[in-house]
Amino acid sequence: MKYDLNKMMCLDVFLSDLTKEVQHTVDSQIQNRKIRSMPLLSWDLYMEGYSHQLAVAIKRLERDKVLGFAQKFNWKNDLNFAFSENDYEALIIMDLNQNIIWVNEGFSTMTGYSKKFAMNKTPKFLQGKETLEDSKSRIRKKILLQVPFKELIINHKKNGMAYTCEVKIIPLISDRTTHFIAFEKEVI
């Protein structure tokens, strides 16, 4: 079988997919002619698209995980709408006492704390010397009222670095509020 090597734009990908017998034939053709190499110009475009697709897939898996909790706890909230309306890095699901029952990987990336470490703790472990009492007080009041809200709070990463976090908290309701979901992202 003869291959037109002049028409192959991505020789390394092509070669990696050949059987040993076919690769031997192609190798002899390559050695008998000069092949003009082309710079790899499209890798950055490919990676941008791949990164976007990966991020979309991760968000879909996270949404599906939360929808699984919704089914288990019979939440009546429109969580598909909540996901479409809220941009986030970290997702946290807490019970009524604000004990964390689940976080996504984005939580670990944003804070430096592992998912395992966060389990059964309240988000208070993220607060530190730069966390403002006013922010904490407003969040406590809105949690007690069990209403959706958005707040900025200064939290602290595992390494001690302070960061401003936008928190959107929504009560999760079956017959009554049973849990809360927090959509969080670091803001500058």
Rank of each mutant, 00 (worst) to 15 (best):
Q31V: 14
K124C: 07
K150C: 13
E85M: 08
W43R: 13
N159R: 06
G160N: 08
F83L: 03
T164E: 05
M161E: 15
G68H: 10
T19R: 10
Y46F: 14
F73P: 00
K34I: 15
N32D: 14
Q29E: 11
E85Q: 07
Q31K: 15
K76S: 10
I139S: 01
V22F: 10
Q29V: 05
R138F: 09
A55T: 08
P39L: 07
K72N: 12
G106K: 02
P123R: 02
D44P: 12
A55I: 05
V56Y: 11
H24E: 12
I101L: 12
M94K: 03
M110K: 04
L45Q: 15
I100V: 08
S108M: 01
F73R: 01
E48M: 09
N155D: 09
L144H: 11
K34H: 14
S84A: 13
A162M: 10
Y46E: 10
W75C: 00
V26H: 04
F149S: 05
N99W: 04
G106V: 01
S28L: 12
E133M: 13
K59S: 06
M110S: 06
Q53S: 13
F81P: 02
S135W: 07
N99Y: 14
I139F: 05
Q29C: 10
K157F: 05
K136P: 02
Q127S: 10
S137C: 04
D27K: 11
K76P: 04
Q146Y: 02
Y50C: 02
E48K: 15
L96E: 06
I30S: 04
R138C: 01
L54S: 11
E48W: 03
S135T: 11
R60T: 13
N97K: 09
K157Q: 14
N86S: 07
Y163W: 10
P39D: 13
L54Q: 11
F125H: 09
Q23E: 12
N97G: 14
K115N: 06
F125Y: 12
L54P: 04
G106L: 02
T164G: 04
I93Q: 00
E21I: 00
W102L: 04
M94C: 10
I154A: 08
V26W: 04
K158R: 14
F107E: 00
L79G: 06
M110Q: 10
Q98H: 09
W43I: 15
H156Y: 07
K124H: 07
K76M: 04
N86W: 00
Y88F: 10
K59L: 01
E85D: 06
N80G: 11
M119N: 05
F83D: 01
E151W: 01
I92V: 14
G49C: 09
K65W: 05
S137T: 14
R140G: 00
N155T: 05
N120I: 09
G106M: 00
D44M: 07
L79P: 04
P39V: 10
V56A: 08
K115W: 00
T122F: 01
L67V: 09
K115G: 06
F73N: 03
R33S: 15
F81Q: 12
M94N: 07
F83I: 06
Q146W: 03
Q23H: 13
K65D: 05
I30H: 03
L132G: 08
